[in-house]
Nucleic acid binder design. Sequence first.
RNA 1: GGCCCGUUCGUCUAGGGGUUAGGACGCAGGAUUUUCAUUCCUGUAACACGGGUUCGAUUCCCGUACGGGCUACCA
Length: 499
Amino acid sequence: MSVRVRFAPSPTGALHIGGVRTALYNYLFARQQGGTFILRIEDTDQTRYVPGAEQYIIDTLKWVGLLPDEGVGFGGDKGPYRQSDRKEIYQRYAHELVQRGHAYYAFDSAETLEKRREAEENFTYNHLTRQALDNSLSLSSEETDKRLKAGEPFVIRLKVMPGRPIHINDLIRGEVVFQSSELDDKVLLKADGMPTYHLANIVDDHLMEITHVIRGEEWLPSTAHHVLLYEGFGWTDTMPRFSHLPLILKPVGNGKLSKRDGAKFGMPVFPLEWNGATPEESFSGFRDTGFLPEAVINFLALLGWHPGGEQEIFSIDELVQAFSVDHISKGGARFDYEKAKWFNQKYIQAADNAVLASYIGPLAAAKGYNPSEDYLQQVAALMKERVTFLPDFVETGYYLFEPVREYDRETFQKKWTPAVADFFAELIKMVATFDHFNAAALEEAVKHFMQEKGFKPGDVLPLLRIALAGTMKGPAVFDMAVALGREETVRRLEALTRL
RNA sequence: GGCCCGUUCGUCUAGGGGUUAGGACGCAGGAUUUUCAUUCCUGUAACACGGGUUCGAUUCCCGUACGGGCUACCA
């Protein structure tokens, strides 16, 4: 039987970076096993639906390159893949479960139960309390039918039989045991006719022939209910294998990484930018911060999983090759932004100049620059070993696109003597008429000229650097000169003499 | 509170009954580069605690502590 896995997010806002990791692990597993990776949209909570969130999920998967084989927006013959489009299916199965004696109708309103919980701290709807509540187990069948026919609102609840252990064999955690007596009678079908996660997820996984469920640790406690559902439907022989992933924790302090942490620690926790209704609900993402998607993938892959060995940089193909569920850690992983930055730096360094140019182009255009493709590639080559984020190319390296805005006056004054000034006048003439404008030849010529006039490199080179870039930081002087071209180099040298 | 999961350097992790407990990020120092960065080298630093089991436990078992998750007609 071929492997089929699903990534099943809820469109309730921007997709959290932890969700991207879940998608990644599902993807890696599917690819490695020659299986199928499915995107299912779990939008059964109408009250939490956020327009644009579904598209955000799809855009994210496209950006990081985790393309589903089936799913909303990707086709497939096991659809529909959006749960709100499957409402009738769940209703049918929910009623079937009642027929089979594993579920029942309950008429208690949400408000009544809420009041009950306020009064009794540990109130639970379960085998101990259900006889005293308003449902088809406590009511006569005539009364139940009457209420149903009258159109009284109802939910369908799972009938949990007490007194037995439920064993789960988690691929990451090993055997986990729950006692059925401690489980509540979970709502399966809500009063609005929509299923809860529990029902929808079991019905869909069964119908979509899912073989492995790889999801967050927060689902582990309800997995016992899910097993009961598979049993109730008689689907135990095709029940998927479960793997519950560790959580991603805050960089410092306690608790799991939250969307607020982005602003708090000055780092992205979402893949893409998200424009919410208010500034507080709007977030920047890894993409607009200037991360390469490959770097994000590499970083995320190693946040909670490691194949052993000492390799750190993995291409997506290498990840697919090396991935295995049993090498996923059990403990939560702290979000390490410094490491994420390091990965990005590494990926930028290793990237093709042409690839980099395709990223720098739009960034440059946004600043009003209009460089040629060839020039962008030169900028990429010059700066790729000195940047962390993509925008650094046009920000730290702005002087490659426009005249120097600010000079390092301190160094300038230290080096600028009347003798040097005289030398500069001659140097400018020399450069202006220099024919073979390539870095090696220019360096050779300038150094030779310096020597002839009795100057040391340290007397002149810093000034050349300041003339071209304004700062003591940056690419090699003669490389910059060549990139800028003879005219511009001369112009900048002259500008320095007027300082 | 109840149920469940977890715990190796500051962080991500490898490892697993006998190891100098390995790598990476970060940090510190050095070399190269007349800049910065890159690169390279060196250093820093960990098996939560207490009991078992064992000739021997960081590794296996049980507790404790700490952390986390769940406990909705949310996912």
